[in-house]
């Protein structure tokens, strides 16, 4: 089936089998391998991308459902060499260890901050509860999001 999607600002026309999951379209067809797969049950959120600006789990959508829509993956978050403030904050606050959940966690955080510029700790804990991290215990992730939030309000990009 022919689909047309905008991925990270670029228009892509593709012919996909209806059964192809969005995450496999992104990883295998578009070679954007920053979006990961961690479970088969839409539990872990490693596959999180933004669909028309809203965070979704790309392992539980077919690529055809994204037809005529905009997708942002982790690769589309930074502007060239310049890291997005969330990416910088995750590095500075140690918000990752093995790094596998990180792209999904950052995409969810981007969506969270787009709805709530200054979330409380509790709002962050709830907001990222669709993303599992096995390494950090989440404290450093929460600090990272808080840092990005205050950087943004402080005018840092």
């Amino acid at each position: 089936m022919k689909i047309s999607v905008n991925v990270n600002g670029r228009n892509v026309d593709a012919d996909v089998e209806p059964r192809k999951l969005l995450v496999d379209f992104i990883r295998d067809d578009l070679h954007l391998t920053g979006t990961h797969v961690g479970c088969d049950t839409s539990s872990c959120g490693a596959c999180t991308v933004l669909l028309d600006g809203v965070a979704v789990k790309s392992c539980t959508m077919f690529a055809v459902q994204a037809n005529n829509r905009n997708i942002t993956t982790i690769e589309g978050l930074s502007k060239g060499d310049e890291l997005h403030r969330l990416q910088s904050a995750f590095i500075e606050e140690g918000g990752l260890q093995c790094g596998y959940c990180t792209p999904g966690m950052i995409m969810t955080s981007a969506w969270l901050l787009s709805n709530n510029a200054a979330p409380t700790e509790e709002e962050i804990r709830n907001g990222i509860s669709g993303n599992l991290c096995r390494c950090t215990g989440y404290d450093s992730i929460i600090r990272s999001i808080q840092k990005a939030s205050s950087d943004r309000r402080g005018g840092r990009k």
Binding site: V54, A55, V56, N126, G127, S129
Partner: peptide, 9 residues
């Protein structure tokens, strides 16, 4: 229901 991301879906 479920979690914040799944609620978007």
């Amino acid at each position: 229901i479920a979690d914040p991301l799944l609620r978007n879906m």
